[in-house]
Design a protein around this nucleic acid. Sequence first.
DNA 1: AGACACGGATAATCT
DNA 2: ATCCGTGTCT
Length: 727
Amino acid sequence: MSDHLARLNPEQRESVETIDGPLLVLAGAGTGKTRVLTTRFAHILLSRKAFPSQVLAVTFTNKAAREMRERVAAILGQPAEGLWLGTFHALAARMLRRHAELVGLNASFSILDTDDQMRLLKQVMEAARIDTKRFAPPALMAIIQRWKDRGLPPGRITAAEDSDFVAGRAKELYAAYQDRLRTLNACDFGDLLMHVTEILRGYPEVLAEYHRRFRYILVDEYQDTNLVQYLWLRLLAQGHQNICCVGDDDQSIYSWRGAEVENILRFEKDFPAARIVRLERNYRSTEQILGAAAGLIAHNTGRLGKTLRSGRNDARGDKVQVHGLWDSDEEARMVGERIEALRREGHASAEMAILVRANAQTRAFEERLITLGIPYKVIGGLRFYERQEIRDAVAYARVLNQPSDDLAFERIINLPRRGVGEQGLRAMHARARERSIPLTAAVMSLVEDGGLRGKVRDAMRGLLEGFARWRAGILQEGHITTMAVMLDESGYMEMWKQDKSVEAPGRIENLKEFVRALADFESIGGFLEHVALVMDNEQNADGDRVNLMTLHAAKGLEFDTVFLPGWEEGVFPSQRTMDESGLKGLEEERRLAYVGLTRARQRAIVSHCANRRIYANWQSSVPSRFIEEIPAEFVEMGGAGSLERERLLRAPSFGAQFPMMARRPQVQEAWEQPARAARADAIPVGTRVFHQKFGYGRVTASEDDKLDIEFEKAGAKRVLDRFVERA
DNA sequence: AGACACGGATAATCT
DNA sequence: ATCCGTGTCT
């Protein structure tokens, strides 16, 4: 039992051994957070404080859940079975299935994917006679999701929480959308936690049951929780107060998805007896990298304050290198050369990563690596279950599993083409509504009474008979064979075989993989639950490949060498973030930079370009302020007299903008003094101006550095004055 | 139903 | 530039 504790440092040990009472562990990057969580879990079990089924352990990702399960099993020396260990959503789904009727659902409710959600909302908007061109469904969906993130069903939305989007009808449409979901016996992602939280709030006996069940609660990546997740945890922890949350406020990079760092501060308030332990000994990176990262993140305000110290006693390491390049091609070339050189020295490709701000930036590097013949893999991007053909196949499986799944049926009714158009679909919906029956039943009745004719009628009859046959086939031949037969006989597979596009062969491969994946499940229902909750993307993990991914995707990973390209104002920090979220957005970008730097064990190579292509045209760009924010003592500029640098200095129009040599334009000053009044260069009301994106317009009002402009093409917008020029 | 043209948007995405 | 959804014509 002491075995697993022996290798922990004092703070880690304290985090593991403080079992009872609320505990907040502030764990900096690379300080052994996962180890603390898993050891703590095992420690609770080994010290016989609870049975495995009495511990609730929550993570954000399936990957993290899997890892924790494996490591707990390793410490225990046996498979970790029967645990309540999983992602927020998986655990919430599990709870919701047990009490679904309390929120008007049935235990077999289906979980919708984003396509279905959007189509459903659009239907609801159209039924309410909303012009979906003026009011975009995705925009309303974002508002609804934000409400769900905050644990607000339609009935809980107060005037203060309401939105004036869609002429003040957002709340009404939200209620209609929720009604539709209930009718369909379906949930979207946000519903899982919101419904469960409503149940725990409204049914004390259910809450009491979970209080009895869960003696200990463990939470990973606590800084990324949103409000509803927080409420859920607080309700569950109310009884025994044995909750341990592990997180790092400096690595909070998901606020745009509803995460609230404030949950960390709230923790101390709601659990006044909470112990707080800081893990500050970093075992990952060199002192140079830690110094650079610490100096950078120190520019943020309102931190809980941690100072990473190196827990390693090896060499101090290399300084963080910063390269200025002419353009993105040259940047890709530089990165390629460095990778080649490292490989020649015997470094493994898998120990190198290129971390970009946005997915689109990976392309330049991919092309370069292909040219050089360096194997690489792109992490993230479209996940397996997000691909079109897989979603179609899943829709087939859903109809097979539940004939009343109208959304799934509608998706595949004309895939492959069966001659069903808008007219046909309208007739089917009308029949379904008038008799209150599912779409499949409506189609059946239309086939029988002649409501459908000719080719369509034959096709529909064939399809429905097919589903009946395949459903019977599950019992005889098993679900795996049946799925393959269904994709074949329905003509879906054939559709892709006929398709001449370059993607088609890949899609057929994916479909075969899809059928193979079924083998891991005992039933279609079990498989569908997995598909809805798990978006695994463990692609070609094999081989020694350079890693290419976004900074977001890199959280939690580490590499010997990390390339951080595109550190330019507007790109990183992203202009859009700063426009939308101001100083808060900037600080989140800075945390993203901090996450990037701290991924590196041995060396970090930052780069920026003087010219970058944005959409169609080239734009000159300025080095990111984050570069200046890294203390000079940890930085080494350029590749000492590199050709790039010389050329850059000689280039007449950009020389003045070379790294650190020129004062940045107003961008930075605007943030430093946001409230500065009546500026000398203020643009007066009535002035005709030009904006890069919106074109020409006239200023109708101004406030500080913000202007209200009536654009000739784009309509009324509020923009920052530095983005417009007098026309 | 299907081909083609037009206009608007264009980040990050753990489930 | 390019992708996507929508509208129009055949």
